[in-house]
Every structure is written in C-alpha cells, then in structure tokens.
C-alpha cells in the first residue's frame, strides 16, 4: 500500500521534472563548399551530423566543445534560425520542422535568443526602449503607455536604470548591453532561451554577474536555457545537464556534476583536464590533446575522435560509435567509455 503510493509519487515527480520542451531527432546541417573552379564535386562541411537530443522544461542544458564543433550551428538549427537539412524538431509538444513563417512567428514568441556579441546584436541607431520593445512591436503587443511601462518593468528586472531608456546602446558598457539583450529576450515571457555564447564576450567579473542574472530570471520566470559556451567553469556553474560536441557529433550527454567528476568519453576527459583549475594545489595529470581539430569537411572515418584519442583501437577507425545510454541519463558515443 505504502509502496504503491511512494511509487506513484515518484512517478509523478519524475514526470513533472522531466517534461520535454524541445526534442530533436536526427538533425543534420551540412554546408556545401566548392572544392575548385573546375571541379563539379561538391563537398560538405558536416557542421551538425545526425544529432538527437532532448531538453527538459526548466533546466539549463549546455553545449560545449571546441570552436568548429558545430555547437552554435546546432543551437541555431534547433530554433530554425538556420534551417536543418534533415531531422525533426518538436517544441512544446508541437512539430515545428515544417511550420510556415506565420506559424513560426507564433512559436518564436516562446523561443528567444541572447546573442554573443553585445555590440553587434543591438542596432546602434535605436534607443534602448525600442531595442527592448522590439519583440513587442513585431507582435503588435503593448502599445503607447503600456509599452513604456513594460520596458521599465523589464529594465528593472534585468538591473538596468529605467531612466536611461531613451539612450542609445553605445552609451552602455558591455555587461549592460548584454542586459539589454536579455531584457529583449524575456520581453514576451518566453519558455525557452537560446544563449549563444551569451557571456563569452564579457570580462570575467561581468560574466558572473550576467550569469547570476540569468539564473535568477530562470527561477523567477521558469525559463529553459540552451546555453552554448566554451568556458567550462561557467558551464559547470550554470548548467543542469551538458552535451559535449566534437566535429558535428554529440559525444556525451549527462548531468553536469557527473560529467565533470567522471567523464566517460576520452574527449570530455581531455577537455575537462585541460580546463585551468583555479585551485593551485590540485595536481592532476594533464592529458593534452594532440593536434588540431580535424576539418569538418573531411572528418576522420569511424569515430571522429580516433585521430586524437589516446585509447583508440582499430575498431574506432572503422565503426562510428552510436550515442548510447551507459547509466541512467548518461549517454556516451564511445566504444570504450571510461566508466
């Protein structure tokens, strides 16, 4: 009797926690490159190569990886900012893959973006009030006095002085501009925000403030973040779950602490070990990756990491490992996972 109640409670609990807000199946995004003037053969940069993932409501899911790993492209493909070549995406229970412009416009109210460059992402010839109100204006929500009130409310929410709403963005510092970008992103009360390297361009001290702001807003507004970054410390701080990307493939997915404390993929291991540790007394054996990330237009056969992997075998050169669940909630694409 008691057991069954407990089981039921637990089921409810997990169901509540694990509502999928964004689900991607077999997403591919290839960019054609012409190899020469006379050559007709078209090569492709496989920026995102057959990736499936699920993001749960209310969590922060981070994508990490070196430059060129395709993490930004994946993020943009998931929001159909760049159309994926193959695969399906469902958002909030609806398949958005084939939606037309008008339908997407409605869906986009719930999925917003915070951009990397606090300078480039704000129109230099618009006042802060118009920058923040842009999503409202596009969707014809809030007019006149209500619009001003909403902008003031948003500016207060992100820690900006509302009396400066008639200034231009160049009068603000990098961190403040990023706050303007955040205010713009939350203006429509979205469910989901893609933060594409949202703090990478900022000073470290300002990064922390902006990340804290993002965390506060998440609690307050029930946001889900897809956080794309290469700073591993900030990822550890903000994320619930992490996906590690290498050359267009997702190589490992799991809870952030599990991955940081016990990486299962040799690449994740290398990535975490090369991350500078603020504690000077910690002595770890450093595993330095050999060579550069290979060109995504001509990726290695089999497991894409085998050219740089310390434990690669012949099998790795031939057979591409599938992403499989080795522990509950822990997915790894490796023939010889470290755990």
């Amino acid at each position: 009797m008691i057991d069954s109640v407990e089981v039921k409670l637990r089921l409810d609990d997990t169901q509540n926690q694990k509502k999928i807000i964004l689900k991607a199946d077999h997403i591919k995004k290839y960019f054609p490159v012409k190899s020469g003037i006379l050559s007709r053969e078209v090569k492709y940069v496989k920026a995102v190569d057959d990736i499936s993932l699920e993001i749960f409501e209310g969590e922060t899911f981070s994508l990490v990886g070196e430059s060129g790993s395709g993490k930004s492209t994946l993020g943009r493909a998931l929001l159909r900012i760049q159309e994926p070549d193959e695969g399906t995406i469902s958002f909030d229970g609806k398949d958005i893959t084939a939606m037309n412009r008008q339908q997407m416009k409605d869906v986009r109210k719930d999925m917003q973006v915070i951009y990397q460059d606090p300078f480039g992402s704000l129109n230099p010839r618009m006042k802060v009030i118009d920058l923040i109100a842009e999503p409202l204006d596009i969707n014809n929500l809030y007019r006149g006095k209500e619009r001003v009130e909403r902008v003031i409310e948003l500016m207060e929410l992100v820690g900006l002085d509302p009396s400066r709403r008639n200034r231009y963005s160049h009068e603000f510092s990098g961190g403040q501009r990023q706050r303007i970008g955040i205010a713009r992103a939350i203006a429509l009360n979205p469910k989901f925000i893609l933060a594409d390297e949202a703090v990478s361009a900022l000073d470290v001290s300002v990064q922390a403030q902006v990340v804290n702001l993002m965390k506060d807003l998440q609690k307050e507004l029930g946001l889900t973040y897809l956080f794309i970054a290469h700073g591993l410390n900030i990822v550890r701080y903000i994320s619930d779950r992490v996906g590690v990307m290498y050359l267009g493939k997702l190589v490992e997915v799991g809870n952030v602490e599990d991955i940081y404390s016990r990486p299962a993929h040799p690449y994740t291991n290398a990535l975490i070990q090369t991350n500078p540790n603020p504690n000077p007394r910690s002595r770890r054996e450093k595993l330095i990756l050999k060579g550069e990330i290979p060109s995504p237009s001509n990726p290695p056969s089999g497991c894409r990491f085998h050219t740089r992997c310390p434990i690669a075998s012949d099998k790795c050169k031939e057979v591409s490992p599938e992403l499989r669940e080795i522990l509950p909630g822990r997915l790894v694409a490796c023939h010889y996972p470290l755990i």
């Binding site: 416009k105 917003q112 480039g120 992402s121 596009i138």
Partner: peptide, 20 residues
C-alpha cells in the same frame, strides 16, 4: 549583422527589417 538576424528571429518581416 547580428541585430538583423535577431530581428528576423523575432519574426520581423522583410520590410520592417529593411527600414528599421
């Protein structure tokens, strides 16, 4: 530029993006 892409992502139509 990024702000043009941002505007498109927010659902702005071509004419609005061009003139704003």
């Amino acid at each position: 530029s990024e702000f043009v892409e941002a505007s498109k992502t927010m659902g702005s139509n071509a004419m609005r993006t061009l003139f704003k």
